[in-house]
Write a protein that binds this DNA or RNA. Structure first.
Lengths: 198, 198, 198, 198
DNA sequence: CATGAATGAGATTTCATTCAT
DNA sequence: AATGAATGAAATCTCATTCAT
């Protein structure tokens, strides 16, 4: 990348960080371009030089988020022989991601059910697929290390996803309390690995 | 109720049904009052005679939904000694409710995190609490019938909620396929009652 | 008048009284037909049987008000030889009228400057002219009793009008206090009869 | 002020002038934002960039009006030893102000009696108080120059206000004629300084 | 290249009036 | 005769996007 391209990329990421901060505190629709521009100390026009619109900001932010998540998963959950620890860490990383990106994740859900044909979504889909693939590899490794699951990888991932997203929603509607994160993670562990029935 | 009041109640429910149909197909914000009025073959003004605004329509619809859900739960899950069957039915009823009302449920999530002080929300909260109480009674009964849970009722309900809402989200972002409902219900059963690990 | 006509006239006056009560507490535009109908315990349709619309209610109310004012003026200010007392009473009656009808008087002002062609306004104009004529007769009588004015009747009436309406406005914008009526009347006396300069 | 701020201030004043023109010809409620935008050759949205809403336009316009009035009063009525001339000029300036801003003044009256708690009104109240203070200083000066009033400053100002506002109303309901201004001013002088009785 | 003023479609809401029952 | 459900025009306000400077 040339210097120009690097600078541009740097600025995009910076705007993305600013936007993420806003998206974390209120739903997508309630964050205005004005607000992002102001918080990033840029003119609104400049935002449109960097991104084609509000949607693309969202896509950029969420893709970077998934990238980082994947990097962390790879580093911390793949290639270790301590499977229980890896799975525990897996839940933590996923939970933290969904908690931070909750508003964007939900916006994406709506988007997907509305404009099913969108070039933007494809970028997210690709990134998302990499995430899924990575999870599969982690589970596969767990199996080779002797862990036994009652479900196939597909189902396993769906269950994982559901449990975490569900807790994310619960967290959005309940006033945040102390140790909610720890409680949630414990509950998650119970749901997924231990089972609810004694 | 007088005839007038009955008629008014009917019309409100009718408009509610029409609105629910729209809310099922797109997010709350994308359904306009114009649209509801048109689909109900009413003038916009008439809607405002029946409801104080868009929010109240949502509240009416969702409260009726929870009412019906509670009635069904009471009839089909409470007071039977076939506990496994009751719990299975419980999941089905909850799943169907959340699938149908997904957009409204999510709208409510946002609402709750924004306008934390709203007379409307109180009505929903009351209704929601009844729902929670009913679930507690069902679990309590299950315990008296000999079923043993690893968690207390509070946690149990949170886990149930999370799992179902999570699947609801998954369903919203994936194109609907054949037997998705059956697959989801099976997965739900596994997650909650059987556990994922063999 | 037949019995039917009498009843109708009675009801119109009743509705008028109800409406006046509302108009006394808020501006014309903020009083809705719904409100009047409800307070009069009549259906909205019935209102439209009695009056051709909201404007006509206003006209009816204000005309009756001027009629009553004229009757009182005639009884209490005309034909007495105690001129100072008559003029004092005159101010009181006018002041009380304008204070009670302030919102309607102002609405009429706007109406007059907008829709200069209106059959309704003619009725008010006629009534208003009778009021003016009566005032002229009172002043004329005062002159024959020896009172001397620096202005002709036209100007006198205009000054009287201005002073009272001005106080009416002041009263509308200031929070009501004790003896505001007495203070206003004293000020009015000073302005008009005594003069402000010592 | 930076160039940007200056330009913005200019635009606000320009819009204010346009709005005042409209407010002078019809009551506040009958002037729509669309209308103002069209007359100012701006989009509706631009208006909302400059002002937070219709009310703020009114406040801006009226505050500027009072400011200008105060400036003129200070220049022309304060610090001259020709007291009669100063008082005459005072009446002229006040009369012209109230005649020009009549609709806004009346709108304010209603506003004050309705929404007694409004940040907007505070701005007007402050401005209005400065106006009152200035009038007091002028009357105080007149007294030091030997003029004697029958009333204290408070009452004097109330009387002045009443007389002018009253004439303002009269002028609003009567079709404008030649020399109405001169006649009104003469009447005002008579009412306030000379007295009506010979 | 950066800017932010300008835009205008589209949303919610109000209410005088009509008219079928 | 009485009713009040239905209407729809018109108002205010928001905000993603464009474009002249």
């Amino acid at each position: 990348m040339s210097r120009k391209e690097l600078e541009r990329s740097f600025r995009k990421d910076f705007v993305g960080d600013v936007a993420l901060e806003l998206f974390s505190s209120k739903p997508f629709e309630r964050v205005s371009m004005d607000e992002i521009a102001q918080k990033a100390e840029l003119g609104k026009g400049t935002l449109y030089k960097l991104f084609s619109g509000k949607e693309e900001i969202m896509v950029h932010v969420i893709c970077r988020g998934i990238e980082n998540l994947c990097r962390d998963l790879e580093e911390q959950c793949l290639g270790t022989s301590d499977v229980p620890q890896a799975l525990k860490r897996l839940l933590e990383l996923e939970y933290d991601f969904y908690t931070k990106y909750s508003n964007l994740v939900l916006k994406l859900v709506f988007h997907q059910s509305d404009n099913s044909e969108s070039a933007f979504l494809d970028r997210v889909r690709v990134q998302h697929q990499q995430h899924i693939d990575l999870l599969e590899r982690i589970f596969e490794q767990a199996r080779t290390e002797g862990m036994q699951f009652r479900l196939d990888n597909q189902e396993l991932i769906q269950a994982l996803n559901a449990a975490i997203k569900g807790l994310m929603i619960n967290r959005m509607e309940q006033p945040i309390q102390d140790n909610s994160r720890e409680k949630d993670l414990e509950l998650l562990n119970t749901m997924l690995w231990t089972g609810l029935l004694a």
